[in-house]
C-alpha cells in the first residue's frame, strides 16, 4: 500500500460536501499519480461523498493507492437502496428538490461512478446502509513520478 486515506462523512452536512474528495484528489496529485487517473478517482470520490451526504446518516470515504490502482470505498449507515438496478439507471433519483438546486440529485451519481471505474461493486441492505467499491486500475495508466509502478 502506497497511501491510505479515510474520512468520516456526516449525512446532511452540505457545507462540507466535497471536502473529503478534495483532500483525496490533492493527495493523489501530490504523490505523483497522473492527471487522468487522479481526475477519474476524484470524480468517483466526489460523487460517493455527495451520495452519503444526500442519502445517509453517516459514512466513511476511503481511498487506497497501491501499485494495482486506486480503490475508492464508500460505506454508509443509511436507508439503503431497495432496487440497485433501478438506482443504477441514469436519471433515476430519490434526492429531494433542494439537492437539485445544488446541481446534483439528477440520477447521475452512481452511473457516473461506474463510468469512471474499471471495477465497480455496490451492495446495499435496506434499513442498514450501502457499500460502494470502485477501482481505477493501474493498467489504465497509473504512472507515478514518471515511471510505471
Amino acid at each position: 500500500m502506497i497511501l491510505e486515506m479515510s474520512y468520516d462523512i456526516t449525512g446532511g452536512d452540505f457545507a462540507a460536501a466535497g471536502e473529503a474528495a478534495t483532500k483525496i484528489k490533492r493527495a493523489l496529485k501530490q504523490i505523483g499519480v497522473d492527471a487522468q487517473t487522479t481526475r477519474r478517482a476524484a470524480i468517483i470520490a466526489y460523487e460517493a461523498e455527495m451520495n452519503i451526504i444526500i442519502h445517509a446518516y453517516r459514512g466513511t470515504l476511503q481511498a487506497r493507492v497501491s501499485p494495482e490502482g486506486i480503490e475508492i470505498l464508500a460505506e454508509d449507515e443509511g436507508p439503503g437502496i431497495p432496487d440497485i438496478e433501478l438506482a443504477m439507471q441514469e436519471g433515476y433519483s430519490t434526492a429531494p428538490e433542494k439537492i437539485r438546486e445544488m446541481g446534483f440529485g439528477a440520477g447521475m451519481g452512481l452511473p457516473n461512478m461506474k463510468k469512471f471505474s474499471d471495477e465497480f461493486h455496490i451492495t446495499s441492505e435496506v434499513g442498514k446502509g450501502t457499500r460502494v467499491r470502485a477501482v481505477v486500475s493501474s493498467s489504465t495508466a497509473l504512472i507515478m513520478n514518471g515511471s510505471e509502478v
Binding site: 460536501a17 466535497g18 478534495t22 476524484a42 470524480i43 445544488m102 446534483f104
Partner: peptide, 14 residues
C-alpha cells in the same frame, strides 16, 4: 449555478 459545488466540480474535473 453559483454555489460551492460549482467550485468543487471545477477542481475535481480540472
Amino acid at each position: 449555478l453559483t454555489n460551492a459545488q460549482v467550485i468543487r466540480t471545477a477542481e475535481m474535473n480540472d
